[in-house]
Nucleic acid binder design. Structure first.
Lengths: 209, 209
DNA sequence: ATATCATATGAATAGAGATTCATATGAAAC
DNA sequence: GTTTCATATGAATCTCTATTCATATGATAT
């Protein structure tokens, strides 16, 4: 946790530090991110940085917490409140849709999440502070989907939850990679959902050779 | 490419350098890997390192090439030779099976591949040297699967190829993460293939609620 | 006005690690 | 046996950053 001095700062200055940190962590991994660059962008002396934070990791964990909070706020609250009314595939689609809106508005935050996801050691250390992750969320809606008879009861909820999480990151990953970021249409999401829902086997024609 | 001095080395010494490099790159990302550690493990002075390689990246690219070659050699050659005879799902299963055997025998090489996959900037730089990647391989067998009427013709081959590649890495990822690495049984692969093939929708019971 | 306290400041320190360099060695050529 | 050339060697250099520290500032209380 940042020190009291950080929280005592005028809002505007505190915000500048947060934005500088997001900028830097979005561009570079935790390890490669530079305290000096953050201080410079925020317009504060390096010395002040250490008045506000224990060290670089202290700030990083704080930023991750902000991201998690913002992401949770972004998820369709109506959906969460009425989870019992929605079917699995509808919930899944809504979740991905929320994720896409979020990625569109806050691409930097998604980039930071992605690089954390790819650093397992750091993930463990950082997520140790939280109970809930996306894997946990998926696992719960899968369990519900099975209980409701909507999902194949022979699937392994923990396994599928992990797979769905990996897929969301894979998706984010290659949307960035292609440099398209054309997030207006949900086409790519629908493609993926169709595969998850129905697989890719051809069901309409005889198999030829 | 390493310098001539490296290729002129006695086999045993050259091998020691390669193994030391694989050790280090498997434990640490390219960026975090230390030239000094590699030199020390290989039992050569740091100065010699720079007689053999331009720099750290020169060695890394060479190691990646070795891994790619070894991996290709590992893929069921019979399968490649008789690709026309096999169906898509059979090819996919064989591919994953080869991948698993490979991961079991050479876990370090898989770890290196994984960390490269997670560093997109570096991947581009390194894969620039190769024409063929796993994405390309998948794309070809998917195209064949569609042509043969085995796969849903409305899927997007490039997209699905990318998804299948991401899934293989996701799988490797959480096999390492769980620390299980119980690669004797293909259970986890079959779980994944079943989802790809059939999706996860329940087809045997009415949907209740 | 002075004392006290929180905060600000940026130069100095420390450590890590890549890369260079001047020098040494040793084999083959003459 | 001396010249030449490739290779070996590891100390010295260079760069980059995190972190510390001694000192300054400025507000509030007395």
């Amino acid at each position: 946790m940042p020190k009291d001095t950080f929280f005592n700062l005028p809002d505007e200055k505190r915000q500048r530090v947060i934005e500088a940190a997001i900028d830097e962590f979005a561009k570079r991994s935790f390890h490669d991110a530079r305290v000096t660059a953050i201080a410079e962008k925020a317009g504060i002396p390096v010395g002040s940085f250490y008045q506000y934070f224990e060290d670089k990791k202290d700030l990083f964990k704080y930023i991750i917490k902000l991201i998690a909070d913002e992401k949770i706020a972004y998820i369709n609250q109506d959906m969460i409140a009425n989870m019992q009314r929605y079917g699995f595939f509808q919930l899944l689609r809504e979740t991905y849709a929320s994720g896409f809106r979020f990625a569109k508005e806050r691409p930097q935050l998604v980039a930071i999440g992605l690089s954390l996801w790819n650093d397992k050691a750091l993930s463990h250390e950082v997520y140790g502070d939280y109970i809930e992750t996306s894997v946990g969320f998926f696992q719960r809606i899968i369990a519900k989907g099975i209980a409701d008879g909507e999902l194949d009861p022979s699937i392994d909820p923990a396994f599928v939850a992990r797979l769905l999480t990996a897929l969301t990151y894979a998706l984010a990953d290659f949307i960035y990679d292609d440099g398209k970021l054309d997030l207006d249409d949900m086409e790519i999401v629908d493609k993926m959902l169709r595969i998850i829902e129905n697989g890719i086997k051809n069901r309409t024609a005889a198999i030829g050779g």
